[in-house]
Design a protein around this nucleic acid. Structure first.
Lengths: 181, 181
DNA sequence: AGTACCATGTAAGCCGTTACATGATTCT
DNA sequence: AGAATCATGTAACGGCTTACATGGTACT
């Protein structure tokens, strides 16, 4: 009953008309931090959205490509979802789960996993900062500046937290809250 | 191929032996920020884990309840997954998607959605801070302190970012990057 | 001619949600 | 006795991933 893919597609088309192929790449690039979808999901969803008159084909190009745009009804539905629909805040993050379980490991292994995460966060930060730098010259940026700023801040918090965990003095691993006698 | 539910269950049982019913509640409480599962998924998963000798029944109580504990093989599998398995960092966060799409709204509506998010973040922060306060006296805390600290820091970043968006001077809504002439 | 990439679709199967279903224990 | 809560299970359905499948266009 979530059906967020529908609104993700509507949202991307509200930014600019696109082919299914372009949407697929956009999911990988701009949206990869919060949503993801494969082409095998996107093409059928576009067909359903077209049947519901929420999007329409506005052009056919080379290689059988179809360019879709959002309709007025689609904009209304997108607006309704953003403003009126109750957000589903449940998340499903394997990284979060790992972070939650990592204290169960012994010191050396725990540090190793934190260091792996740290390397990933540094890479994310570098990518986001490159994006921010590139946006200042771009005439039509891919992403909104404040969102990039938020990503940088969150990753900075993650980085400093992970750094503290790596530097921290040894704490007990194994079963939580029990003292092994 | 992700199969993280399996490792989430193993991880919770590594903290302490539990019944399926207790695991269900723990998913709602401790793990709600990164993973979720219903009892209809947990009971069959426990049966599969038992068949694979990764968990075992260590007691039967009132009302037909079965208490499970992780086995040595289960601990080995959990450790292997945490240390060796390549993390799947793809996320699926409706809140993230909403944040990404909110700039498409006009000023008034955009502010309203940021304010709704702000209220939610404040509530999260209050809950986390209450948890931190309660943990100092508890003999066997439910959650590890550094993880709570991380949650507080991330939510603080979100709060200040949302606050800036609410206070920000009006910026263009509508189709991104285009100037409506 | 061959390779790489653009572009769209379908099918099988797993994962997760909602709904259905049952029974035990405790409290009033 | 009835309601609330504890406790465990199964079934139907839809979403998402992986894999299968096809063809167009550009480059060398």
């Amino acid at each position: 009953m979530t059906m967020s893919l529908r609104h993700a597609v509507l949202g991307l088309l509200a930014r600019r008309p696109s082919t299914g192929y372009e949407l697929t790449r956009t999911f990988d690039r701009s949206l990869r931090s919060s949503w993801h979808a494969r082409h095998s999901q996107i093409y059928p969803e576009l067909a359903k959205l077209e049947a519901a008159d929420l999007v329409e084909v506005v052009g056919r190009g080379a290689r059988r490509s179809k360019t879709y745009d959002i309709t007025e009804a689609g904009r209304a539905e997108l607006r309704r979802w953003l403003v009126e629909a109750e957000p589903d805040r449940s998340q499903r993050s394997e990284s979060g789960l790992r972070l939650f379980l990592t204290p169960l490991l012994e010191t050396a292994e725990r540090r190793a996993t934190y260091e792996r995460d740290l390397a990933h966060v540094e890479a994310e930060l570098a990518a986001l900062e490159a994006l921010r730098a590139g946006m200042q010259s771009a005439t039509e940026p891919e992403v909104f500046a404040p969102q990039v700023e938020l990503g940088i801040r969150v990753n900075n918090v993650l980085r400093s937290w992970l750094h503290e965990q790596v530097e921290a003095p040894a704490a007990s691993g194994g079963r939580h809250g029990r003292t092994e006698t």
